[in-house]
Design a protein around this nucleic acid. Structure first.
Lengths: 243, 243
DNA sequence: AGGACGCTGTACGGAAACGGACGGACGACA
DNA sequence: TGTCGTCCGTCCGTTTCCGTACAGCGTCCT
């Protein structure tokens, strides 16, 4: 593939030979906001490595309520099911912030994993981080206030898209956090009042990251640290080849 | 190992030759209530496959609040980190209901995985189910009432220990669900009133499973189904060997 | 028997967030 | 320039669960 210039941290951590092999028949796609990626029962033919796009993984309950349960940006890939040999995806996922992703065919992805090189270890550890994050959020949603979770969400999103400004409506954020739109409006108003963020009709800007981080719960740091650890943990440690 | 008679569903799904190899130097251990298994930063030397024991995985927040974020019984193993090549465990885990587990050394476990037989596929898919469950609980904790979550928890625990009766105090259940002890007492009183369960000083009995299931949220069925699917998905589908 | 401890029941005020609704403001588009 | 749809601010009564406290009751120990 000629036009991949880096951007996905998982891909960028690969030795170039391995990356070239994996990306031979890959292509870059532009995802638009709200574009669906996964639906329950589906089995997509591609594995996506976001570059600038942001993907939300949500659970849709019987009564129609929808909660975000995971988020994947340039630090990961989607769906993990293809790396775990699970035969059907049971979640819903869609593009939350428009941008580019690298699409790799399932066959190529699996073949590359079978090489047991860097990719295998990275993918495995990245799944570990995904699990860690999900578990953290299980506790977070029970223990931390909406205000804390709201700040955490904004920071996590910022990190993944790599921009301090991104499109976001109160309505959407409310859905992600599983709360009322009006509650988000209140909190967002406070955060704006305090100078941490700025709102303008569907566009947020993080104006004071440190201030926002103060208001976020510890889960932000925990999840960030874990992803960092997992992505930078060198090849030395992945003893998955021959023992 | 002479004395493993079956009981862990993961181990029991293995071809006997593979199981024998994995369990050559394994031993059965009895875990007592509250016995710690994992602590943040630790790296246990064994992988445990519960038979009758039940293991809780919890997150401990800075303020000391503790929430259960995962649970492992005879359908799984702990810690998943050893299967994912993650170098340090970041969670706390302990025995919640006393019972037996099969302990396998890390080296033997990794070597067995390297064989790329059934174990590898089962472990991978089981991690998929763990992730699915965690994600489900992220949404559950936001969306569903305490009453629903309480019923769900009791059923999930019942399934994993394989008994309708097990030791449990309101206090402990409150910690697991991340709520007040008094709230649990209220809900438990209702459920008892309705004939779904029975309480006697630290011992619960599920007297009417169907009734309890009615009162549980959909997450119970979702998680149960997913584990079932993943454990019974035949070898035919795990194309992880040579492609 | 007497006490200590652990477990359960209950009560009260308060905080957080809900459900639902209404109105205003901004921007796009005809 | 007017209109319409989207997005944001606010309000009110209600529910759920919290924090805290206290009292009763079983079990075990001495």
């Amino acid at each position: 593939m000629p036009d991949y210039q880096g951007g996905n941290r998982l891909l960028d951590a690969l030795p170039s030979s391995e990356r070239d092999a994996l990306l031979r028949d890959a292509r870059i796609e532009h995802l638009v906001r709200r574009q669906p990626l996964l639906a329950p029962g589906s089995l997509p033919g591609d594995v996506s490595f976001p570059i600038s796009a942001l993907v939300s993984i949500v659970v849709v309950f019987e009564n129609g309520e929808t909660n975000e349960v995971g988020v994947v940006g340039r630090e990961g890939f989607v769906p993990v099911e293809h790396a775990l040999g699970v035969q059907a995806v049971q979640r819903t996922a869609f593009c939350q912030v428009a941008g580019e992703t690298v699409h790799v065919g399932v066959a190529a992805f699996r073949a590359a994993i079978e090489q047991r090189g860097e990719l295998f270890g990275l993918v495995q550890r990245s799944i570990g981080a995904r699990l860690f994050a999900a578990e953290q959020l299980v506790g977070c949603n029970i223990t931390h206030s909406l205000r804390e979770r709201c700040a955490r969400w904004l920071l996590m999103t910022r990190d993944r898209v790599g921009e301090n400004e991104f499109p976001l409506t109160h309505d959407f954020l409310a859905m992600m956090l599983g709360v009322r739109r009006a509650s988000v409006t209140e909190i967002a108003g406070e955060l704006q009042e305090e100078g941490a963020i700025k709102y303008q009709r569907g566009l947020v800007t993080i104006t004071d990251e440190a201030k926002l981080a103060q208001r976020a719960c510890e889960c932000y740091a925990a999840i960030t640290t874990e992803f960092e650890r997992v992505l930078t943990e060198g090849r030395r440690n992945t003893n998955h080849g021959r023992s």
